[in-house]
Simulated assay, not measured.
Amino acid sequence: MTELRGTDSDLNSHSKPSRFFMDAGKWYFHTREGGIEGPYDYLYEAERDLEAYVNMFASSVQAHSGPLELQPLEMRWR
């Protein structure tokens, strides 16, 4: 069981909003990049694909584990 801290009013006071939602009988999930993935017939399918999505993103970040180099934006007036 989750224990409450002295400042917590109830168990839901610090809950994280779900990435999953249902619309018209189909399941979807939100990505941190602001996208929506779906539709899925079952919640477990959306959960499975969210895990795969996160793993794919984590793998691509690890592949570029060095410091990110940003190129300066050059603006030229004509």
Rank of each mutant, 00 (worst) to 15 (best):
K16T: 08
T31I: 03
R76N: 11
D8N: 05
E74T: 14
S59A: 15
Y42W: 09
F20D: 00
A58D: 15
Y53M: 02
L73M: 15
E33H: 09
L70S: 04
N12M: 12
D41A: 10
A58E: 14
D10C: 11
Q71Y: 09
A52Q: 07
G38P: 00
D10E: 11
D23C: 10
L11M: 13
V54E: 14
H30G: 01
R32P: 01
K16W: 06
A63D: 04
M1W: 06
T7G: 15
P67N: 11
N55T: 11
P72Y: 01
G38M: 03
R76M: 13
E3Q: 15
P67R: 10
S60A: 08
P17L: 09
W27Y: 03
A24H: 07
L11F: 13
H30D: 06
H14Q: 13
Y42T: 07
L68S: 12
A58Q: 13
V61Y: 04
T31E: 02
R76L: 13
F21K: 01
S60Y: 04
S59G: 09
S65E: 14
D41Y: 11
S15Y: 05
R76H: 10
D10V: 02
D41F: 11
R78K: 08
T31R: 01
P39Y: 00
N12P: 01
T2G: 08
E47R: 05
E3V: 13
K26C: 05
M75T: 09
H30W: 10
L70H: 10
P17A: 11
A24Q: 11
G38T: 01
D49R: 00
A58C: 10
D10S: 08
W27M: 03
